[in-house]
Protein backbone atom coordinates (compact mmCIF):
# COMPACT_ATOMS: atom_id res chain seq x y z
CA UNK A 1 0.00 0.00 0.00
CA UNK A 2 1.83 3.04 -1.22
CA UNK A 3 -1.23 5.12 -1.99
CA UNK A 4 -1.67 8.57 -0.49
CA UNK A 5 -5.44 8.19 -0.64
CA UNK A 6 -7.62 7.87 2.43
CA UNK A 7 -8.58 4.22 1.98
CA UNK A 8 -11.28 2.24 3.83
CA UNK A 9 -8.68 -0.35 4.78
CA UNK A 10 -7.63 -1.63 8.19
CA UNK A 11 -5.53 -4.43 9.59
CA UNK A 12 -6.86 -6.77 12.24
CA UNK A 13 -5.26 -6.02 15.63
CA UNK A 14 -5.75 -7.35 19.14
CA UNK A 15 -7.39 -5.07 21.66
CA UNK A 16 -7.57 -1.77 19.82
CA UNK A 17 -10.19 -0.51 22.30
CA UNK A 18 -8.58 -2.07 25.37
CA UNK A 19 -9.44 -5.21 27.26
CA UNK A 20 -13.12 -5.63 26.49
CA UNK A 21 -13.52 -8.56 28.88
CA UNK A 22 -14.75 -6.21 31.59
CA UNK A 23 -17.92 -5.55 29.58
CA UNK A 24 -18.96 -9.13 30.41
CA UNK A 25 -22.00 -9.89 32.57
CA UNK A 26 -21.95 -13.66 32.12
CA UNK A 27 -18.95 -15.89 31.77
CA UNK A 28 -18.64 -19.03 29.61
CA UNK A 29 -17.26 -22.04 31.50
CA UNK A 30 -16.09 -25.07 29.52
CA UNK A 31 -16.77 -28.54 30.92
CA UNK A 32 -13.73 -30.39 29.56
CA UNK A 33 -15.23 -33.80 30.43
CA UNK A 34 -18.18 -33.20 28.12
CA UNK A 35 -16.10 -31.39 25.38
CA UNK A 36 -15.78 -33.49 22.19
CA UNK A 37 -13.05 -31.25 20.65
CA UNK A 38 -15.11 -30.27 17.59
CA UNK A 39 -13.96 -26.62 17.52
CA UNK A 40 -17.40 -25.21 16.69
CA UNK A 41 -17.19 -22.66 19.55
CA UNK A 42 -13.85 -21.44 18.17
CA UNK A 43 -15.40 -21.06 14.71
CA UNK A 44 -18.43 -19.13 15.90
CA UNK A 45 -16.80 -16.77 18.41
CA UNK A 46 -17.35 -13.28 16.92
CA UNK A 47 -14.42 -11.82 18.84
CA UNK A 48 -11.84 -14.53 18.24
CA UNK A 49 -11.70 -15.00 22.01
CA UNK A 50 -11.60 -18.80 21.94
CA UNK A 51 -8.24 -20.31 21.23
CA UNK A 52 -7.59 -23.93 20.30
CA UNK A 53 -4.84 -25.31 22.51
CA UNK A 54 -5.12 -28.86 21.16
CA UNK A 55 -4.31 -30.22 24.64
CA UNK A 56 -6.09 -33.60 25.21
CA UNK A 57 -7.40 -32.45 28.58
CA UNK A 58 -8.05 -28.81 27.60
CA UNK A 59 -8.81 -28.60 23.86
CA UNK A 60 -10.08 -25.00 23.83
CA UNK A 61 -9.53 -22.03 26.10
CA UNK A 62 -11.59 -18.84 26.50
CA UNK A 63 -9.56 -15.63 26.51
CA UNK A 64 -11.32 -13.78 29.33
CA UNK A 65 -9.35 -10.60 28.59
CA UNK A 66 -11.48 -10.07 25.50
CA UNK A 67 -14.56 -12.34 25.83
CA UNK A 68 -17.61 -10.07 26.13
CA UNK A 69 -19.86 -12.91 27.28
CA UNK A 70 -22.23 -12.98 24.36
CA UNK A 71 -23.02 -16.65 24.86
CA UNK A 72 -22.83 -17.77 21.24
CA UNK A 73 -20.31 -20.51 22.08
CA UNK A 74 -22.63 -21.90 24.73
CA UNK A 75 -25.51 -21.82 22.26
CA UNK A 76 -23.73 -23.61 19.40
CA UNK A 77 -21.95 -26.26 21.45
CA UNK A 78 -23.45 -29.59 20.23
CA UNK A 79 -22.96 -31.33 23.62
CA UNK A 80 -23.86 -28.37 25.88
CA UNK A 81 -20.36 -28.37 27.37
CA UNK A 82 -20.28 -24.58 27.80
CA UNK A 83 -22.46 -22.96 30.45
CA UNK A 84 -22.89 -19.25 31.11
CA UNK A 85 -22.38 -18.38 34.78
CA UNK A 86 -22.85 -15.09 36.63
CA UNK A 87 -19.66 -13.05 36.98
Amino acid sequence: MSSTHKLPISRPAIGVVGKTGYWRLKRPEVNYVKCIKCGICWLYCPDSSINILGDPSKYVEVDYNYCKGCGICSNVCPVKAITMTEE
Binding site: S3, H5, K6, L7, I9, R11, P12
Partner: peptide
Amino acid sequence: PYNMCSDDVLTMGNLPMAEE
Protein backbone atom coordinates in the same frame (compact mmCIF):
# COMPACT_ATOMS: atom_id res chain seq x y z
CA PRO B 1 -4.14 1.02 -4.29
CA TYR B 2 -4.13 -2.32 -2.41
CA ASN B 3 -4.69 -6.00 -3.10
CA MET B 4 -7.20 -7.96 -1.04
CA CYS B 5 -5.59 -11.28 -2.02
CA SER B 6 -2.01 -10.46 -1.03
CA ASP B 7 -0.26 -11.89 2.05
CA ASP B 8 -0.90 -8.58 3.79
CA VAL B 9 -4.11 -9.39 5.71
CA LEU B 10 -6.55 -6.50 5.23
CA THR B 11 -10.09 -5.65 6.22
CA MET B 12 -12.01 -3.47 3.75
CA GLY B 13 -14.88 -1.25 4.82
CA ASN B 14 -14.54 -1.57 8.58
CA LEU B 15 -16.57 0.82 10.73
CA PRO B 16 -14.64 4.12 10.92
CA MET B 17 -15.10 7.17 13.12
CA ALA B 18 -17.43 9.82 11.65
CA GLU B 19 -14.56 12.16 10.79
CA GLU B 20 -12.66 9.38 9.03
